[in-house]
C-alpha cells in the first residue's frame, strides 16, 4: 500500500470527530445538569408560604411531592407549565402534594402572576435568599423535583413541566406507594 496515500486519512481524522462532537451538542442546554440528589433524601427546610403559613420538609412526608421552582419573570416557560400544574392539581387532588418555591422573585410578582394565569391551589414557599434553591442545585427556573412518599428525590425535570412528564413521574411515585400500601 502506498504510504503517501495515508495522508488522506488526515481529512476524516479532523472532520469526523469535530462534526460528531458538534452534532452531539444539538438541543443540549448547558445549564441542564444532572441532580446529585436522585436517590437521596430531599434537603430539609422550614419556609414561610405566600400566605404566611410555615411549611417544613418533614410534614411533606407520606405523599409524593412535586416541588417546583419558578418565578413570575420566567416567561413563557413558567406560564406554560403553570397550566400543566393547574391541571395536575385538579386531577391528582390530595393524592399528591404540589409545592411551589419562588425563585429570586418578590411576593408581589408571584401574586400578580397568580391573578393573571390562575390562582394556584398549592402553597408557594418564599425562599428569599435562595438557600433552598442552592440546596437543591437549581440553575434557573423552571426546575422541578419529584420526591416519593418517604422523602427520597426520584426525578429532576429541567425546564418546563409537560403533561407527559407529570403523569409519568407521579404515576410511578403513586404506583410505588400504592404497591407498598396494599
Amino acid at each position: 500500500m502506498n504510504v503517501r496515500a495515508l495522508r488522506w486519512l488526515l481529512v476524516p481524522l479532523v472532520v469526523v470527530p469535530l462534526v460528531l462532537l458538534l452534532l452531539h451538542g444539538f438541543g443540549r442546554d448547558p445549564q441542564a445538569i444532572p441532580s446529585r440528589l436522585i436517590g437521596k433524601p430531599m434537603p430539609e427546610f422550614r419556609l414561610v408560604t405566600l400566605d404566611g403559613r410555615t411549611v417544613t420538609s418533614a410534614e411533606l412526608r407520606g405523599k409524593p411531592v412535586l416541588l417546583n421552582f419558578w418565578a413570575s419573570w420566567c416567561i413563557p416557560a413558567c406560564v406554560d407549565e403553570h397550566a400543566v400544574m393547574l391541571e395536575a392539581a385538579r386531577s391528582y387532588g390530595s393524592a399528591v402534594q404540589i409545592v411551589g418555591v419562588l425563585y429570586q422573585d418578590t411576593p408581589d410578582g408571584a401574586r400578580t402572576f397568580g391573578a393573571r394565569y390562575g390562582e394556584p391551589s398549592w402553597p408557594t414557599l418564599l425562599d428569599p435568599d435562595g438557600r433552598l434553591a442552592l440546596d437543591f442545585g437549581v440553575t434557573g427556573p423552571p426546575e422541578s423535583y419529584f420526591v416519593d412518599a418517604r422523602g427520597i428525590v426520584r426525578y429532576k425535570q429541567f425546564g418546563p413541566l409537560t403533561a407527559a412528564v407529570v403523569s409519568d413521574q407521579l404515576g410511578r411515585l403513586l404506583g410505588a406507594a400504592g404497591g407498598r400500601g396494599s
Binding site: 429570586q104 435568599d129 437549581v138 434557573g140
Partner: peptide, 22 residues
C-alpha cells in the same frame, strides 16, 4: 449557577450573593 459562565465572585445575581454569604 444562574449566570452564563461568570464566577460567583464576579456576579451579582441572587444565587451568587447567597453563595458568597455561605
Amino acid at each position: 449557577p444562574d449566570c452564563q459562565g461568570l464566577s460567583v465572585a464576579d456576579s451579582n445575581s441572587g444565587s451568587a450573593v447567597e453563595i458568597r454569604r455561605q
